[in-house]
Amino acid sequence: MTRPNPLLSGLAGRCPNCGEGHLFDGFLKVAPQCEACGYDLAKADSGDGPAVFVILIAGFVVAFAALYVELAFTPPIWLHLLLWLPLTVMVSLGLLRPMKGVMLAAQIANRASQARTDD
C-alpha cells in the first residue's frame, strides 16, 4: 500500500498519514487522532501560519479586484462596501481550513515539532 501525498491529503482535510480519516473535528479544530489509522494528530499545531497566508491571498485578490472595478467603472463607495466586504469574508473562510490542513500536513510530513525549552 502506498502512502498518500500528505499535502494533498491536508488540502482535502484528510489524515496526512493514511489519507482516509478526517483531519478536523469541526471547522478548524484538529481531531485528536485519525479515525482510520489511529495516528496521533493532537500534537500538531499550525500556529498563525494559515491565517497569515489567508490574509495575504485574500488581500491580494480583493484589493486588486476592487482597484480594477474602481478604475474601470467608478462605482459609489457603498457599492464597494457591498461587494468587497462579503467577498473578503467568503474568501477568508473558504481558504482558512484548506490552508490549515496543508500547514498541519507539512508539519507532520517533515516531522517538525515545537521548540523545546528544557535542557
Results as ranks from 00 to 15, higher is better:
residue 11 L to Q: 05
residue 105 A to E: 04
residue 13 G to C: 10
residue 86 P to S: 12
residue 59 G to A: 14
residue 65 A to V: 09
residue 118 D to M: 08
residue 102 V to D: 02
residue 69 V to R: 04
residue 43 K to T: 13
residue 60 F to I: 11
residue 1 M to C: 05
residue 26 G to Y: 02
residue 72 A to Q: 09
residue 77 I to W: 13
residue 84 W to V: 12
residue 111 R to A: 14
residue 40 D to N: 15
residue 27 F to Q: 09
residue 33 Q to W: 04
residue 50 P to Y: 03
residue 89 V to P: 01
residue 119 D to K: 05
residue 56 L to K: 08
residue 106 A to F: 03
residue 76 P to T: 02
residue 112 A to I: 06
residue 34 C to A: 13
residue 41 L to C: 03
residue 6 P to E: 12
residue 82 L to A: 15
residue 119 D to L: 09
residue 26 G to M: 02
residue 43 K to D: 12
residue 24 F to E: 11
residue 70 E to Q: 12
residue 87 L to W: 02
residue 82 L to F: 13
residue 40 D to T: 10
residue 79 L to H: 09
residue 51 A to D: 08
residue 110 N to T: 13
residue 5 N to M: 03
residue 5 N to S: 15
residue 48 D to K: 03
residue 96 L to D: 05
residue 55 I to K: 00
residue 46 S to G: 14
residue 62 V to Y: 06
residue 88 T to K: 01
residue 27 F to T: 11
residue 100 K to P: 04
residue 103 M to D: 00
residue 8 L to A: 12
residue 81 L to V: 11
residue 101 G to H: 00
residue 69 V to H: 05
residue 68 Y to S: 10
residue 70 E to K: 01
residue 3 R to V: 06
residue 14 R to M: 01
residue 19 G to C: 06
residue 18 C to D: 10
residue 28 L to P: 05
residue 77 I to A: 15
residue 20 E to R: 14
residue 78 W to M: 11
residue 14 R to C: 07
residue 3 R to G: 14
residue 117 T to C: 10
residue 47 G to F: 03
residue 28 L to I: 06
residue 33 Q to Y: 09
residue 19 G to H: 04
residue 117 T to G: 15
residue 114 Q to V: 08
residue 102 V to W: 00
residue 59 G to W: 05
residue 8 L to R: 13
residue 61 V to G: 08
residue 26 G to D: 14
residue 45 D to N: 13
residue 6 P to N: 12
residue 109 A to N: 02
residue 13 G to L: 08
residue 61 V to M: 12
residue 8 L to K: 10
residue 83 L to V: 11
residue 17 N to G: 00
residue 67 L to H: 08
residue 36 A to W: 00
residue 30 V to S: 06
residue 23 L to E: 04
residue 95 L to G: 08
residue 4 P to Y: 06
residue 84 W to L: 12
residue 69 V to G: 01
residue 7 L to T: 04
residue 46 S to D: 10
residue 30 V to P: 01
residue 6 P to T: 11
residue 60 F to W: 07
residue 13 G to D: 09
residue 72 A to P: 00
residue 71 L to S: 11
residue 62 V to K: 08
residue 11 L to K: 03
residue 53 F to H: 05
residue 105 A to K: 06
residue 54 V to R: 02
residue 5 N to V: 03
residue 77 I to V: 15
residue 3 R to L: 14
residue 34 C to Y: 04
residue 117 T to R: 11
residue 43 K to G: 15
residue 70 E to V: 00
residue 1 M to Q: 08
residue 21 G to A: 10
residue 34 C to D: 07
residue 28 L to D: 08
residue 69 V to K: 03
residue 23 L to P: 05
residue 72 A to C: 05
residue 83 L to W: 04
residue 20 E to G: 00
residue 89 V to R: 07
residue 119 D to W: 03
residue 47 G to Q: 03
residue 15 C to Q: 03
residue 61 V to H: 05
residue 18 C to K: 02
residue 101 G to D: 01
residue 21 G to L: 01
residue 33 Q to H: 14
residue 43 K to Q: 11
residue 3 R to H: 06
